[in-house]
């Protein structure tokens, strides 16, 4: 039983596709790439839209606050589920207080402060790690049937 549970919980990466995003013009091709993978694993249209919107929010954050970085696009599977995992990594200034950044309506920029909390609502799994002065890494997973 333990072994089965462990198997279900293990997320296997099937395909890795790193993509640098350094300028605003890279955003549209990046979104299209994410969409291609989502279509490939037969993700429904609503989930596709949520995933791409979340990706768009995070990539904007990465450009605006982190000065650009790299996104790793992965097709992942866990048991019978397949999904897309996106890892956004930048070498920017980092976020001093993550819990504050995750609060609705909080922003240091000129935005509405919906980016991070909104993104969290759109995806199935959301993880953020940040170190001041070193950079930020955000990982999200959207399951095809999630």
């Amino acid at each position: 039983m333990k072994r089965i549970l462990k198997m279900i919980a293990t997320i296997i990466s099937l395909n890795k596709d790193p993509m640098p995003v350094a300028r605003e013009q890279d955003v549209v091709p990046f979104r299209n790439r994410v969409k291609e993978y989502a279509v490939k694993i037969k993700m429904g249209l609503v989930n596709q839209t949520k995933l791409i919107t979340a990706a768009s929010e995070l990539v904007r954050n990465m450009l605006r606050y982190g000065g650009g970085g790299e996104v790793l696009i992965e097709v992942v599977s866990r048991g019978r589920d397949s999904g897309i995992r996106l890892t956004f990594k930048d070498d920017g200034p980092g976020i001093p207080d993550i819990s504050l950044a995750l609060k609705d309506g909080y922003s240091t920029g000129k935005s509405l402060g919906l980016g991070l909390p909104g993104t969290k609502r759109l995806v199935n799994e959301f993880d953020i790690k940040s170190e001041v002065g070193k950079g930020t890494k955000v990982t999200i997973i959207k399951w095809a049937n999630g």
């Binding site: 609503v46 839209t49 949520k50 919107t53 929010e57 609705d104 509405l112 919906l114 909390p117 909104g118 993104t119 609502r121 759109l122």
Partner: peptide, 9 residues
């Protein structure tokens, strides 16, 4: 529409 509302906008 679904995504916008979930996003909080």
């Amino acid at each position: 529409a679904i995504t916008l509302v979930e996003l909080g906008l």
